[in-house]
């Protein structure tokens, strides 16, 4: 509480006001308190959203320990202890969705992660500002397009009757079977993520690159360092913290891969290729009506996920980086 009080700017205002007559000081203080209350009311009003839709829903996770029957409601349904979790641990379909999730996440880490970095280095190396800004604008754009549109665009370009196959047919080469092909699904989703987010992902790297003092490059060049040595000794150290941070955060979030992206395409390729933990929860609960079981799987993912983010953050701090929170 003492720390709280010390931080209040009201105190500094009050001490400044102590030079003025005592009446003004009193008035000052009264204003201070009134204002804080008005803001508190607004704050708690908006915070009600979190209470209802986050903490209310969080409490709703009790159905993971129940046999939820819609008619009986959340509280009226019978307790079943940990049986939903026991069933989950024995469910091959569940474990298959876990494996799929991790495989896709790792593929993204290997094939997606370096792309924004490479693109950022390319853009940063351009000295012609107009070209750089133009390419940046174009490259950011797909980030703002919905997954529905991205999937539709990929169908249109790579599908059976799509553009690429049209050209291949005209050229007399055999066509490619990508859309709706379970074997091609994982590379396809990685390609979609690259198309949608690689451009946007450059922002944070470009920011780190722009922080580098131009004089460092100049000094290195005068000392006889060529482009590669300047890259190695000036550029890389500048972006290393960002790279490490993003990498760790992605590892902490490894149980989440694009839910909407998978859900949109799961029917076309089947659960064998496309089922991830989130779609498993969706199909068990929303589609299958097995709410208690689905909530158990969701809660399992939430708990492991939170632990991973927490651990990742710890590692980031250990490495001397900032992390997502302190």
């Amino acid at each position: 509480m003492a720390a709280l009080l010390r931080e209040r700017p009201g105190k500094s205002a009050a001490s400044r006001a102590s030079h003025s007559p005592p009446g003004a000081q009193k008035k000052q203080k009264r204003f201070q308190r009134k204002r804080s209350i008005a803001l508190s009311v607004l704050m708690f009003g908006s915070f009600a959203y979190f209470v209802v839709f986050h903490y209310g829903a969080l409490a709703g996770n009790v159905i993971a320990f129940k046999d939820y029957v819609p008619f009986d409601g959340i509280w009226g349904s019978a307790w079943v202890g940990g049986s939903n979790f026991e069933r989950m641990l024995d469910d091959a379909e569940f474990w298959h969705s876990v494996v799929n999730t991790i495989v896709i996440a790792v593929l993204q880490l290997v094939f997606y992660f370096p792309v924004p970095l490479a693109l950022a280095l390319l853009l940063h190396s351009l000295t012609w500002g107009t070209v750089r800004r133009f390419v940046q604008s174009i490259a950011y754009l797909p980030h703002f397009v919905s997954w529905v549109i991205v999937v539709a665009l990929f169908q249109q370009v790579l599908g059976d009757t799509g553009m690429v196959n049209g050209y291949l047919q005209d050229a007399g080469i055999h066509t490619i079977d990508i859309i709706g092909n379970p074997d091609a699904f994982k590379p396809l989703v990685v390609a979609q993520v690259i198309w949608k987010d690689a451009g946007w992902g450059t922002i944070i790297f470009l920011a780190a690159l722009s922080q580098v003092d131009e004089q460092q490059y100049e000094a290195a060049a005068i000392d006889g360092a060529g482009p590669w040595r300047r890259f190695w000794h000036v550029t890389l150290p500048a972006i290393r913290p960002v790279v490490v941070l993003l990498l760790i955060m992605r590892l902490g979030d490894i149980l989440s891969v694009g839910f909407e992206q998978m859900l949109l395409q799961r029917d076309a390729v089947g659960p064998e290729a496309a089922e991830i933990i989130d779609t498993f929860v969706y199909y068990q609960g929303i589609v299958g009506g097995d709410y208690g079981y689905a909530a158990a799987a969701g809660l399992f993912k939430g708990l492991i996920g939170a632990a991973l983010v927490y651990a990742a953050n710890k590692v980031a701090h250990r490495l001397g980086e900032q992390g997502v929170y302190k």
Binding site: A57, V281, G302
Partner: peptide
């Protein structure tokens, strides 16, 4: 941010 409530409970709310 660290612990999202999950799809099923959100739906039920």
């Amino acid at each position: 941010f660290l612990f999202p409530p999950g799809m099923i409970p959100s739906f039920l709310v």
